[in-house]
Structures are given as structure tokens and as C-alpha cells.
Design a protein around this nucleic acid. Structure first.
Length: 631
RNA sequence: GGUCCUGUAGCUCAGCUGGAUAGAGCAACUGCCUUCUAAGCAGUAGGUCCCAGGUUCGAAUCCUGGCGGGAUCACCA
């Protein structure tokens, strides 16, 4: 039963009967009534007033009067200016609630026979996951769950970036300084490799500076300076540069570019990449070993944060894909070749600049393999939609990719969607791996679990818990706080990650919602002791405002799920879960459940609590957050 | 410079398919545990919704132009 739709139908009839006008159901917009007025839905009559040559107030009164008389759903109404507030009959709410109770897996939309792939996480295998990856993982996982609940068949995919110059860098450093170190309890594989990646970078930087200073003699504009780096930093800070200084900057850039490409260790890394691509046995063996360590480390983290995948793609398998598509593009004249044999996608039909898709030497670039992988995904799953959960720094890239695939007349091109999300910034600025200001994912989660333990223990709320149960609760609360903190924000906004605030357990937080679930479970336990149980068929004729509010909120859940899926916004679910928990919390305080004379009321409120608990549980599940039975 | 995103309370964020007196949380202050979990509830205080025009009965919301913040415009991935 769709209450809103029924009311709209009644309104259409009302307009026909009262004013002899035909309205489309779509033209009628019902909005939630503001808290300070009585009623659940509000019809705004301003738009009709002009047409009917009546005051908005008169229209509202006439329609309200008609509805009250003729519609069993409308118990009462009130009018303020052009706002017609409709009060729904309590027995209708009871009916709505019974419907919810008797709907299996309430919230789940009917299947739509469509398949969608959600690619997320997609890490580089040269360093451990950090806070930015956490946002990606939480968003991807949640979106996948939301789409499932929205009726899609979902494939969660992870495209692992396991090859390339950056991988060779850590391999090289390990080869040089690794002394056959292996992962251990205290240093798992991804962290181990990350350590060597940092080592490489440190050494590389030293080499660059040395090379730069060596080169400066060839450049009169800066030859006299003692340290190029100091000069560079000084110029960076300065405003209103003179022409000479601007020239110096250009020169410095030039030298750095040269140094970056000619530093010994960089050349070595390049050489290693060539060997890898040639299939050199030793190189490939090292690569395999180190990558496997990293995967073990990642799997540990994935398990810790509770995300999973149905399909892994590896760039070492896919990086050569896409070259056929380049030929196809040339044949279809949507690509063209330049004099140096490089191939470009013609994007003159858009605002975008033409894009290189194959280098002059025949090697591919990032977008080449992305085209190939897109084909592969379609081949594997004939997906109707393909979602890429990738940061907003790649907005342009995905615009180009989608356009190119469209020009190539790929049937799936329209279904490509870049779920772009904003960066995660720290109170003192951006995270920069080179400056050591990254927040490591494992450390962060570990730290939050510790804090969850502290808070819980000091409240003395784990009496009777086994050690395992306690540990499980700490983890559930820690991840609940973290995931909710990140998911409640609209994906496209930049997040300011304040470690202090993210572990708050009060107010608009994950634990607050979890707490309300635990309270409900506590009621259920008490009911059990008292020999009362919830029912699948409540009957009651008189409801409290908060009871109506709860039922009304619950009734919108399937639509909220659909909306969140259409907007690719887990934040909508987060907001909903909080609204429901908060409303329940007020109900809990104002409406005693057991301390009540009427058997009927006790059973109704108990059942209402049960229903709310179920919806909270399901909503949180869509965010990848578990709910405890006690806390 | 071009393109895209963004600017709402001291702070973190909702609201943005136009609708009533702009909402939450945190922080501050005041109440409420012999009664179902106080990780809670109730209340007080806090706003030029970046600015200026425009459209409209009505604009935080739509349009135009500014200003501030961010991303991007690689033969990097």
C-alpha cells in the first residue's frame, strides 16, 4: 500500500468534484508537514489558486473539507495561508505498520533484472591503505549494498594496480636494502613494501638534489646560487616576481624535470620495468613474491573493515588490452594518427581536448587499458551499469573515457558512471604521502578500537560479556563511528577529518544509532522475561504523535533506498538512519512501553520498537555498519 | 586562463526536483536517572544561507555576474 499515492489520487478526485478541473497526479506535490503543525502531509495550494481564481486559503479549505468528508484516510485537516495540512487517520497508520511488519525483508525493492558493476578500492600494490582509501572502500561497499537493495544484481569489482614504475620502485629498494626481510606480526606485507617505497623515495630525492646542483653550472640564470632548492623555496614564497625571477623558475623546473628523469635509481627502476615487461624470470619472481605479501596485508585490512569483492581484475592482465580498440577507432575515424605515429581520439564533438590513446612507440597509456578493461567488464558480465568509485581528481579522465567509448558506439557507454568523491583533508591540511602526513588505515582503525574500549569500559556496560563479545563490540562501535562519520557526508564534498570528532559516540554518530538498536533489543529481552511478545498484527485506534512519526518514517524506507541508489549517495541512508534513531529515542523517553495499563498499548509499542529496530538494522547494513544487541 | 565541484550557526554537516518562522550534532548554559540502557531526553543561546542583480505570488534552492576555497586541463597512473 502506497499511502502517498492514494492521497494524491484522492486529491485529484477532490479537484474534479469541487472545481471540475482535471489534474495530473504528477502535478500534485505532497510535502512533509512542518513539525509545528498537526498533520503528516501538506498540499501547497498556491499553484492552483491563480488558475481557479480563488484565494489559496479558500482552495485549501474546500479541498480539505472534501477530503475529510469523502476519504477514509484523511481524518482531519488544518489550513494556514496556502498550506493544507492533512491529518491521516490513526487506523490507516496501523494498517501501514502492519503492512511493513508483514513484508519480508522490508526495504528491499523488487528486482529490476539489471546488472551493475561497482568498481572500488582499486589500490596500488606499493603501499598500505590510508584514510583516503577508507572513504573509497566505505563508499563503494555501501553503494553496492544500496543498489542490491534497490533491485539490482551487483558485482563488486576491484581493479588492482599491481604493475608499473611505482611498483618497480619498491621492488628495487627491497632488492637493495631488504636483506630478505619478510612480513611479520608487527609489520604486515603491505606495510613492509610501503616502507621500501618510502626508502626509494628518500634516496631518489637525494639523488635529484645532487643532480640538480650538478647541472646548475650549465644555466647562467641560476649558476651563482649556492643551493637550487633554497632558491626554489624562496621564489615559491615570493609574490610579484620580476621577469628575471620568472625566468629562474622556468629554468629550475627544467632542471628538476631533467634530474627526475635521470637520477640513477629512477633509471634503474625503468630498467626493471622493461625487464618485467619482457618477462625476465628473476624480476617476475620478485614481483610475485612482494605482491603476494601485499595482498595478504590488504586482505587483512579488508577483513578488518568488512568489505568484500566478487571479482578481482589485475592490471598486469589488463594493461595490454585496448590496443585493438585503437585500431578500431582508426577504422571508424573517431581516432586519428599524427606524424609521429601517436594515436589520438578526436573529441572535437565535445568541449574536451583531443586525447592521446597510444604513444608514438606503440605503447599504451592509462586510458588505453581503461578502454580495454571496460570492454572486458562488459564481456564478463554484460553489465547495464558500470560504476567507478574513484576520487574527484579523475573527473576529467572519466569524462574523456565515457566520451571515447560513446564515440566508439559501445552499448554500455551510457551506463558508465564515475562516482566521484572529494578528498579527505586533515585539520592541518592535506594528506601527503611524501610528507608523512598520511593516516594509515590499519593504525586508524586500531586506534579507534582502543578508544571504543576505553569509553565502553568506563561506562561499565560490558558486565557479563565474554572477552570475545567485548572485542566484537569494540570493533563494531569503532567501525560504526568511523564509517558513519565518513558516509554521512555527501560523497562529492571534501571531508575534514578531525580524529577527535570522528570517534565521538554522542549525537549524530554511528554509535548513537547503534545505541538505539541495543536499547530496543534490551526491551525485547525484558518482554521475553515478562512473557509478552511482539505481534505481526497490531490493533490500536489511538496513536501518539511520535508513534505516527515513526510509522511514517518507516514507510518511506523503500523509497529512500531507491533515492540513495539513483543519486549514488549513501549519505541519504545515513541521514535516514539517524532521523529514525533520533525519533525513536524521543519516543523511548516520552512513551513508556511496559509501564502502561493497556495490554494493547504495551503490545503495540513493543511491536513498534521491534519494527524500528529491524529498519535501523537494515539501514545500517546498507552502510556496512553492524548493530549490537547490547552496549 | 578554460572546465568541473564547492561556500548555510563558533566548528562539522543536512536542506538545494522553488513553498510556512532555514534544521541537526559538537562546543556553551539550565533542568531530568528509587521507573523499560542518561552512549539518552527536554530547554536556553547562537544565522547578512559568500556578495550583487534577475525570474516568481514565494528564492538557501533556479538564471546571470562577481568574490573566496578545491580539483583538473600529462606521450603519470
Amino acid at each position: 500500500m502506497d499511502l502517498q499515492a492514494n492521497i494524491k489520487k484522492s486529491i485529484v478526485i477532490a479537484f474534479k468534484e469541487v472545481y471540475q478541473v482535471d489534474l495530473e497526479e504528477k502535478a500534485i506535490v505532497l510535502q512533509p508537514t512542518r513539525k509545528e503543525f498537526e498533520g503528516t502531509y501538506t498540499l501547497v495550494t498556491f499553484p492552483f489558486a491563480g488558475r481557479l481564481r480563488q484565494s489559496p486559503e479558500a482552495v485549501a479549505n474546500a479541498i480539505g473539507e472534501y477530503l475529510k468528508e469523502s476519504s477514509s484516510e484523511i481524518a482531519d485537516f488544518n489550513v494556514l495561508k496556502g498550506f493544507l495540512n492533512l491529518v491521516i487517520a490513526d487506523n490507516i497508520w496501523v494498517e501501514v505498520f502492519n503492512n511493513i511488519l508483514n513484508t519480508e525483508n522490508y526495504g528491499q525493492n523488487e528486482t529490476n533484472d539489471k546488472t551493475v558493476m561497482v568498481e572500488y578500492s582499486s589500490p596500488n600494490t606499493n603501499k598500505p591503505l590510508h584514510l583516503g582509501h577508507l572513504r573509497n572502500n566505505f563508499l563503494g561497499y555501501s553503494l553496492a549494498e544500496i543498489l542490491k537493495a534497490g533491485g539490482y544484481k551487483v558485482v563488486k569489482a576491484n581493479l588492482v594496480n599491481d604493475r608499473g614504475i611505482h611498483i618497480c620502485k619498491s621492488m628495487l629498494a627491497y632488492q637493495k636494502w631488504g636483506n630478505n626481510e619478510t612480513p611479520s606480526e608487527s609489520l604486515k606485507g603491505d606495510h613492509l613494501i610501503g616502507k621500501y617505497y618510502v626508502e626509494f623515495d628518500k634516496n631518489y630525492k637525494v639523488e635529484i638534489e645532487a643532480l640538480v646542483d650538478e647541472q646548475k653550472v650549465n644555466y647562467p640564470a641560476i649558476a651563482a646560487t649556492t643551493s637550487v632548492k633554497e632558491l626554489k623555496d624562496a621564489l615559491k614564497k615570493k609574490k610579484d616576481l620580476t621577469d628575471d625571477e620568472k625566468k629562474q623558475i622556468e629554468t629550475i623546473k627544467e632542471i628538476y624535470t631533467y634530474a627526475e628523469k635521470n637520477a640513477p635509481s629512477f633509471l634503474e627502476a625503468q630498467e626493471m620495468l622493461r625487464k618485467w615487461e619482457a618477462g625476465d624470470e628473476k624480476t617476475v619472481a620478485l614481483w610475485k613474491q612482494l605482491n603476494n605479501w601485499v595482498y595478504d596485508g590488504f586482505n587483512h585490512t579488508y577483513k578488518l573493515i568488512g568489505v568484500d569483492f566478487d571479482q578481482f581484475y589485475y592490471e598486469s592482465d589488463t594493461y595490454l588490452l585496448g590496443k585493438d580498440i585503437v585500431n578500431e577507432g582508426l577504422e571508424k575515424n573517431t581516432f586519428y594518427k599524427k606524424e609521429d605515429d601517436s594515436v589520438w581520439a578526436d573529441l572535437s564533438n565535445t568541449k574536451l581536448d583531443d586525447k592521446l590513446v597510444l604513444r608514438g612507440d606503440g605503447t599504451s597509456v592509462y586510458i588505453t587499458q581503461d578502454m580495454g578493461t571496460a570492454d572486458l567488464k562488459y564481456k564478463d558480465y554484460s553489465v547495464d551499469k558500470s560504476i567507478y568509485v574513484v576520487g574527484n581528481e579523475q573527473d576529467h579522465h572519466f569524462k574523456v573515457l565515457k566520451t571515447i567509448l560513446g564515440n566508439l558506439e559501445r552499448p554500455y557507454a551510457d551506463g558508465i558512471y564515475h562516482m566521484s568523491y572529494g578528498m579527505v583533508e586533515l585539520p592541518n591540511g592535506k594528506m601527503k604521502s611524501r610528507e608523512g602526513t598520511v593516516v594509515d588505515a590499519d593504525d586508524l582503525v586500531g586506534g579507534m578500537i582502543d578508544i571504543a574500549k576505553e569509553r565502553t569500559d568506563e561506562q561499565g556496560k560490558i558486565d557479563g560479556f565474554t572477552e570475545d563479545q567485548a572485542q566484537e563490540l569494540y570493533k563494531m562501535l569503532a567501525l560504526g563511528a568511523l564509517k558513519y562519520f565518513i558516509l554521512k557526508v555527501d560523497p562529492k564534498n571534501t571531508i575534514l577529518f578531525d580524529p577527535e570528532e570522528s570517534i565521538e559516540f554522542q549525537g549524530n554518530t554511528g554509535p548513537f544509532i547503534q545505541y538505539n538498536h541495543a536499547r530496543i533489543c534490551s526491551l525485547m529481552r525484558k518482554a521475553d522475561e515478562m512473557g509478552v511478545s511482539y505481534t505481526k498484527d497490531v490493533s490500536l485506534s489511538n496513536l501518539e504523535t511520535l508513534e505516527v512519526e515513526l510509522i511514517s518514517l518507516m514507510s518511506t524506507f523503500p523509497d529512500v533506498i531507491k533515492d540513495a541508489g539513483e543519486k549514488y549517495a549513501p549519505s541519504i541512508i545515513a541521514q535516514y538512519a539517524y532521523d529514525l534513531a533520533r525519533t525513536y529515542s524521543r519516543f523511548f523517553n516520552e512513551c513508556p512501553i511496559f509501564k502502561n495499563d493497556s495490554e494493547e498499548v504495551i503490545q503495540f509499542r513493543l511491536t513498534l520498537s521491534y519494527g524500528v529496530g529491524k529498519v535501523i538494522e537494515k539501514a545500517m547494513k546498507l552502510l556496512g555498519i553492524g548493530v549490537p544487541e547490547r552496549m
